[in-house]
């Protein structure tokens, strides 16, 4: 399979050579295939954001390489901007970067910088705003008059509008209420379904990504300690709790039930799935009898 993004021996230390030196990435290696949805999990300060900033060339590796479609992204440093259009990144608290007087203009900032013509810019902006669920009545509003969750969606649309091959989001649900969180996750899910893009989401909460990531990277103290399917990662519950990460409570419950000999899947990450599984277990049990 073709790897769309590959990282080799990546190391990075903030403030190298000063008394403030702080190691953030320690010899990271991995490879991601086109169309995958990747979760990046780790405690605060484990190096997630630092890694993501390397993936689209906002930080330059101190050693090691980042390869996009098997090409070193720093091969031609002058063309790093083109990489940034292909690998879109949306930072933590992205609503802090809004600056235009209307939602539409702000979302159009990215495509305009790409040098597209006006019709194309408008087209992409409309598609992006629609795919984050912000209809026409929002377009002329000032982004500063919106609610937190809406602002966040404007900011995400600003990245989607560049139509990147890889969409990277750093803690897209941080600081939102549960409803805002679910909305963001749902829109990312449907964006992925409609456009079949590679998506990378960082989060310190397992629950956020467990539900729909194909594979999960687990970071601990600037090292990549696991990179595997959600199920395989969750099966190492003890190791996870040692590094301060918890698997969802329903999943814990179902793993225990499975151990007790019940005929159910361990692959349950949400309460809804749990209810369905329990109902089918009950019905299955009745059928047997």
């Amino acid at each position: 399979m073709l790897s769309i993004l590959r990282v080799e021996n990546l190391c990075f230390t903030y403030g190298e050579g000063t008394p403030f030196a702080q190691k953030a990435l320690d010899n990271i290696n991995f490879s991601i295939e086109a169309g995958e949805m990747i979760g990046v999990i780790g405690h605060t300060g484990s190096g997630k954001s630092t890694l993501l900033q390397h993936l689209n060339g906002l930080l330059r590796p101190q050693s090691g390489k980042v390869l996009f479609n098997e090409m070193d992204i720093w091969e031609k440093p002058k063309e790093i901007r083109n990489i940034r259009f292909k690998i879109g990144i949306c930072f933590q608290y992205p609503e802090h970067q809004l600056f235009e007087d209307t939602v539409f203009k702000d979302v159009a900032f990215g495509p305009t910088n790409m040098g597209l013509n006006e019709t194309e810019v408008k087209k992409r902006t409309r598609i992006a705003l629609n795919s984050v669920g912000l209809g026409m009545d929002f377009w002329a509003k000032s982004p500063f008059d919106l609610s937190g969750g809406e602002k966040r969606r404007v900011a995400i649309a600003g990245v989607i509008a560049m139509d990147p091959d890889i969409l990277i989001l750093d803690e897209p649900t941080a600081g939102l209420d549960p409803r805002g969180r679910d909305e963001i996750l749902a829109l990312l899910k449907s964006y992925r379904k409609d456009h079949n893009k590679t998506i990378i989401i960082a989060s310190h909460s397992m629950e956020d990504v467990a539900n729909f990531a194909d594979r999960v990277m687990v970071f601990n103290k600037s090292k990549l300690v696991m990179f595997d399917s959600v199920l395989n990662v969750f099966s190492k519950a003890e190791q996870l709790s040692e590094i301060g990460l918890d698997i969802p409570q329903v999943t814990q419950l179902f793993i225990r039930l499975k151990e007790k000999g019940y005929n159910i899947s361990k692959n349950i990450f949400t309460v809804e799935d749990a209810i369905k599984a329990l109902i089918s277990l009950k019905e299955g049990g009745m059928n047997d009898a």
């Binding site: 949306c90 802090h96 970067q97 900032f109």
Partner: peptide
């Protein structure tokens, strides 16, 4: 932070 965010949008 803001510079990075705008650079990511091609500023």
């Amino acid at each position: 932070k803001i510079t990075n965010a705008q650079k990511a949008r091609g500023a």
